[in-house]
Amino acid sequence: MVQEDDDEEQQKIWSWGAGTDGQLATGRLQDEHSPQLLRSLSAFGHIISLSCGGAHVIAISTGGRVLTWGRGSSGQLGHGEMVNSLQPKIVKALEGFVITHVSAGWNHSGFVSDSGAIFTCGDGSFGQLGHGDFKSQCSPLEVSYFGSKHIDQVACGMRHSLVLLRDNEENQVYGFGSGKRGQLGISTDKVKSTSLPQITMGLTNLKIINISANGDHSAALSADGNLYTWGRGFGRASDACVPRRFEAAFSLNEVALGWNHALLLTREGELFMLGGDRHGVLGDSQKTSLTSDVSGKSKEGIIQIAPDLMDSKVVQIAAGAEHSALVTGKKSNNGSIMTWGWGEHGQLGLGDTSDQTAPRMVSLGNKFDEKNATSRVYCGSGFSFVLRTYDVGSEKR
């Protein structure tokens, strides 16, 4: 009991937005328009990271244990059954492993262990589980294709999956599942689907450090800060069957993909966005500067988002289906959250269901609560989470 109290003091977690499948972990099947401080996760110790999918959430806790909750109708929760869960539950099938990386897709999930093994479960009707068939799985099953090779990351999109393999000198991306928009990157032509992992073209000689997938989009970030995208085109751009480098004059530190847009965070803390402008997801063009792609050839419009952050800079980003979020940082803390875009389910956390065309601050309590804290924001298709961790021994109230 003392341990639970200590963990609660060291960490706070909030959720808001769409909640009718139990994805908010509030114990209620309803949308929440304002941030809800959660108690349901405190019994599981320190939460290291989250991944939010279509309507389910995966969490990694201390020691590499995995918790899931929300929609489970396709088996994506990994509890051995195809039912929803209002409360977080340990994935017992993974208790013998130390899980280091997870990804929640629309209706499927991926898990990577410290030994480099990858497990998947959930909807497999497009081959997105990588098991060589089109069956769904309600418990995590190891993707045997990779054998003893070391997997570093997994990224689950709408109906496809990506895997980043790091094995000695080999650094390669694989794709499997639906490829109808080119999101697998495995052929110069569009592929209906594949149920076995295949090498993504054009990335073999690059040092890829991060992969992303959402909707029918795929992306990879290289060590030198270059972005490669494939799949459904953003804005008026055509679909890309193989990765293409995004021509820009800046180096990127982080990428977040939505269904129709992407957030690009530079190493200097500047935020850019590309793609469509549905629900104001790209911000208010009157308050931002619209520039063209440096190459002059791309039809992907890019907008710089410069909210009034005073002495702050953007330190982390997240994208849902059609909403966006960012975390600002200062010398003493990095706890302020801003959101904008589609708000129908309250996923902006602003107390209403209105869309917002420019970033607005989310209230998570008094300003003092942000001091000596590190915050991260996570977005599912229509909901959001914030994980705030406090510097142990500092005053938090």
Rank of each mutant, 00 (worst) to 15 (best):
E81H: 08
I199H: 03
P243A: 02
A93V: 02
F44V: 09
K92V: 05
K297I: 05
S324K: 06
D123H: 14
S187P: 01
T266Y: 05
T266S: 11
G296K: 04
M361A: 07
W14N: 02
Q36P: 03
G116I: 02
R376L: 15
H279C: 09
T291S: 14
N260S: 13
G17D: 02
D293H: 07
W14Q: 06
G235Q: 12
N366V: 14
R181M: 11
G275K: 08
Y174T: 00
G202S: 11
H160S: 13
R232Q: 06
G382F: 06
D391T: 10
S195G: 01
S212Q: 07
E268S: 10
S394V: 14
R245P: 04
S312K: 15
G283S: 08
S15P: 08
L206E: 15
S354A: 13
H323N: 03
V255E: 03
V143M: 08
E370S: 12
A319L: 00
F119A: 07
I90Q: 01
T328P: 07
M82K: 09
N84T: 09
I58L: 15
G365H: 06
F246W: 15
F368E: 13
N171S: 14
P88V: 08
V362M: 11
V98R: 10
I13K: 09
G72M: 09
P359S: 07
T204A: 15
G45H: 04
G19P: 11
I303Y: 06
L290N: 13
Q316A: 15
S139H: 00
N366I: 15
M310E: 14
S384Y: 03
E395C: 14
S218K: 06
I208N: 11
G365N: 10
D167P: 02
